[in-house]
Simulated assay, not measured.
Amino acid sequence: MGAADRKAGDKAVRYVGKIDRGIYSCVAGDILTDEVVITDERVEHIKERHPGDYERFVGYIPDIIAEPDYIISANKDNTAVILKEIEDNGEKFKLVLRLKVKADPVEYKNSVLTFWHIGNVTWMKSLKNKKILYRRE
């Protein structure tokens, strides 16, 4: 593990960036940290469910979480579904982020649950069928 990696319980975690807690307050008002991590287990999940996406696009995760285009409602509490279009190449992404709030165990962190490259149809359906909590201006 590198300097930016840590252990959280038995899970190896990697620091992937920071969020603006003001933006994400539309999901939860009591977010405790701006640091975001991803566990090795979640990396394996992404690699299995969305082949090639992690390897090709992992470098976009800091931008996706720092400057989301949209945050839409999730099916779980304290969870943000983020939509982001990378402007220099038009690629679109969906990322699910679990936010650490006051009621969570001390060892919890803001954590990427999953992430994948999406097409325009999925992008449009997500915006049409889910409640938009945040829109970048």
Rank of each mutant, 00 (worst) to 15 (best):
I118Q: 03
Y60P: 02
G119T: 04
Y54A: 02
F57A: 09
G9H: 13
K100D: 09
G29Q: 14
K125T: 03
D88R: 14
Y15F: 14
E137S: 15
K84T: 04
Y70H: 14
V96D: 08
V58G: 00
A4F: 12
K130P: 00
H117C: 11
K7S: 06
K100G: 06
G119H: 03
A74T: 06
A12G: 06
K109P: 00
L113M: 14
G59K: 12
A12F: 08
G59A: 10
R42F: 05
L97H: 00
G90Y: 01
T122H: 07
I64K: 05
Y60I: 09
N75C: 12
I65P: 00
F93L: 09
K102Q: 15
D69W: 10
I38D: 04
D30C: 03
A103R: 14
E107D: 13
D104V: 07
H50G: 07
G59S: 13
Y24M: 11
P51G: 07
M124A: 11
I86T: 14
Y108C: 13
A74F: 04
K102W: 13
I46R: 07
R56L: 12
E41M: 08
V27T: 07
K131H: 09
I46P: 06
A66I: 01
Y15D: 04
T79S: 12
K76W: 15
S126P: 06
G119C: 02
R21C: 04
Y70M: 13
K125F: 11
H117D: 12
N120M: 06
A12E: 05
E44I: 03
T122Y: 10
A80Q: 09
N75R: 15
A74G: 13
R135I: 02
I46K: 01
K11P: 02
I19W: 05
A8F: 14
F115E: 07
A80K: 07
Y24Q: 08
N110V: 10
T122D: 12
T39M: 07
P62F: 02
A103N: 11
G90E: 05
A8R: 12
W123M: 10
Y15L: 06
L32V: 15
S126A: 14
Y70P: 01
H50T: 08
C26H: 04
N110C: 12
D77F: 00
H50N: 08
T114K: 06
V121Y: 12
P68N: 02
A103G: 10
E41V: 06
L133D: 06
G29T: 03
R6K: 09
T33W: 03
R135Q: 15
Y15V: 07
S73L: 10
G2H: 13
K131M: 07
A3T: 05
K11F: 11
F93I: 07
F115D: 00
I86K: 06
P51K: 10
I82W: 05
D63N: 11
